[in-house]
């Protein structure tokens, strides 16, 4: 039967055209497979949400559909890795980090298997789908697991660079990524080095240290505040573990304030990691942690949530100004 629908209508499998950076993961894995790397990918009934449907079409023999069984997927990925392949398994960050925490610790990290855990739709990006789908604890959990690196990229180009640069990394990595709608920070691409932050500048008044989606807003806030005569810097701390301690220590010597910005609980996440460094090795800067303040986030469309929690450019600028004053 012919269905006459307006051009404004859409269905889920057309999501790619609505989320510009969604194919990044799939395209990077296809490129790695094309180049001869033994990569495989798996998901738990979310191949359209994370864009792995593209990889599945291109390389069906390398793709495993696990269905809604995330724990089985993580343990199986560890088994796959023992045979010499590099498995990339992806699901919502909330499920991956919380539901599969023990499988990640025992089968992946303790056993030193080079599994790539892709936690997507992280932070509050799932908006009105609610607390069950929000991930504001995943950094705290993942960075406390030995042998496991934690990476939070700012946009599609950064994710692409990170996936390619780490393909041969011998230990597991948790990639905390967004939902494909993230605005582009690095239009001309960016180099990625695990454990090495991208320093956009050190400000005398404030240096913002951000990771993931809020980097875009933080960069805009920095530019606007500098245009208004303040001295503001920004560090994109994409590697939350291993952490670029030198960049933090240098900023603490040259800035009055370090402002951490994350779509995560301020306990245990990026702010917590920076606080640990400053407490032991800091050179004077005062720390302000900005993020979700140990509460369950509200429901709303994502853009409304970022505005509410002051994690967009306007919000980050306002938080910075309050602390400069």
């Amino acid at each position: 039967m012919t269905q006459l629908l307006s051009k404004d209508s859409w269905q889920y499998r057309e999501i790619n055209r609505r989320a510009p950076s969604l194919p990044t993961l799939s395209n990077a894995l296809i490129a790695l497979a094309d180049a001869g790397h033994p990569v495989m990918a798996g998901t738990a009934d979310l191949q359209y949400s994370n864009g792995l449907s593209g990889f599945a079409q291109r390389y069906p023999e390398r793709f495993v559909q696990f269905g809604i069984s995330e724990q089985n997927m993580v343990s199986a990925a560890a088994g796959m890795a023992t045979t010499g392949v590099i498995p990339y398994v992806a699901t919502f960050a909330s499920f991956l980090a919380l539901l599969c925490c023990e499988q990640i610790r025992m089968d992946v990290a303790y056993c030193k298997q080079p599994v790539r855990l892709i936690g997507h739709h992280t932070g509050i990006s799932l908006g009105f789908y609610g607390t069950s789908h929000h991930a504001t604890e995943d950094i705290a959990i993942m960075r406390s697991i030995a042998n496991l690196a934690v990476v939070s990229t700012a946009d599609g180009p950064a994710l692409d660079a990170a996936l390619r640069a780490t393909v041969d990394y011998p230990l597991p990595i948790y990639f905390r990524i967004h939902r494909g709608h993230d605005p582009v920070v690095y239009e001309d691409g960016v180099a990625f080095e695990l454990g090495k932050a991208i320093v956009h500048g050190i400000g005398k008044d404030i240096t913002i240290i951000a990771a993931g989606y809020p980097v875009h807003g933080a960069k805009r806030a920095m530019e606007e505040l500098n245009a208004a005569g303040h001295s503001v810097g920004l560090i994109d701390m994409h590697s939350i573990k291993p952490l670029d301690e030198d960049a933090i220590i240098e900023a603490s010597a040259r800035s009055k304030i370090i402002l951490t910005v994350e779509e995560h609980n301020i306990l245990g996440g990026l702010g917590g990691a920076v606080a640990e460094v400053l407490a032991e090795k800091g050179r004077g800067a005062r720390l302000v942690r900005h993020g979700i303040r140990d509460e369950y986030s509200l429901i709303a469309p994502p853009t409304h949530l970022y505005r509410h929690y002051r994690l967009d450019g306007d919000g980050i600028r306002a938080v910075a100004l309050e602390n400069i004053a």
Binding site: P38, M40, E61, R62, V64, Q71, N72, V74, S75, A76, A77, A78, G79, M80, A81, T82, T83, G84, V85, P87, Q103, M106, D107
Partner: peptide
């Protein structure tokens, strides 16, 4: 966990035709 680990080993083996 072990049955899942075994599933993964055989999925890896299948792709590599081992």
């Amino acid at each position: 966990h072990a049955l899942s680990n075994g599933v993964g080993m055989l999925l890896g083996a299948r792709f590599q035709q081992r």
